[in-house]
Design a protein around this nucleic acid. Structure first.
Lengths: 148, 148
DNA sequence: CGAATCATAACTATTGATGTTACATGAAGC
DNA sequence: GCTTCATGTAACATCAATAGTTATGATTCG
């Protein structure tokens, strides 16, 4: 399967929205992301269900952020997207009768569970506000670099 | 993409080989794993390149473990398989010009790097000998349970 | 020689995200 | 009201990588 980049995509979209006054249309966002507006609607639709964004139709419509940037974590976005599988590697058979395979699964499951817990913990610690602040820093740094 | 279960598969195969006297054919292993002998040869071929197993053709041929069980870690097996991507989730674009996307990537990369480091560390700590020992315990436990 | 077995190429199946096209629905402006 | 702009959604094509299958060749041993 292709790599799932929806979390990356919605973060990119949300940060553009945060830096932009007024709503942004799916077409605007699709151009930012280099993709198709339908793809944008699909992913953003999940965030709407989670109450993170809202959409308006018609003239001057589009997407806007309704939640507080400092409250929305990457973890919440991941959950809003339906908690897609994080790992590309896994057990061949989840409920094997074979005792050998049960042994193998137990070892792998343990390792994956620890890595997943750490990843979700990190996701829980990073908010949209953190990313917006980091962006501001990077933006300023780029300006300084240009001026020298 | 389909979930990559090659690490799980070769572990299952190696543990059966460890419990079995003499070489096992690709057909034997395919039956244990519930798959096709060609699939077995494909995965085991990587382990042969890494010097972990050897194969013999002809009568009484098949696969045998050539390395010390206490030396081969899950990490080595993962490496032998070509270090396939561990995560199903990732950045939409690895080298974006857009500063917003760079900000998003940096945050995600950091989190994924930490989780990957932990996972590989765990993989490095678990050897085939550990799994074989765990299997022995499970085997004994099942026997006891039957007898009660 | 002949059977057993690996080696390998070529092809199909699978799976889920991604991309695209088409059309319906609703809101704002004239 | 009509047109335009926008989302909502269905339907289908594309893609990428493993997994599975078939077929054929190459070795080894009795």
């Amino acid at each position: 399967m292709k790599r799932d980049s929806r979390l990356s995509s919605v973060l990119h979209a949300l940060l553009h929205m945060a830096e932009h006054d007024g709503p942004m249309t799916s077409d605007d966002l699709a151009k930012c992301l280099g993709t198709n507006p339908v793809v944008v609607r699909r992913s953003m639709g999940f965030l709407r269900q989670a109450g993170i964004v809202a959409s308006d139709r018609g003239h001057a419509g589009g997407w806007r952020i309704t939640a507080d940037l400092s409250v929305v974590s990457l973890r919440q976005l991941h959950d809003a997207l339906g908690e897609p599988a994080l790992f590309a590697v896994g057990n061949r058979n989840e409920l094997p009768e074979c005792l050998v395979e049960q042994t193998v699964n137990a070892a792998l499951d343990q390792s994956f569970a620890e890595a997943e817990a750490l990843l979700l913990k990190r996701f829980g610690e990073i908010t949209l506000a953190d990313l917006a602040a980091d962006f501001t820093l990077r933006h300023a740094a780029r300006r300084n670099q240009r001026e020298t």
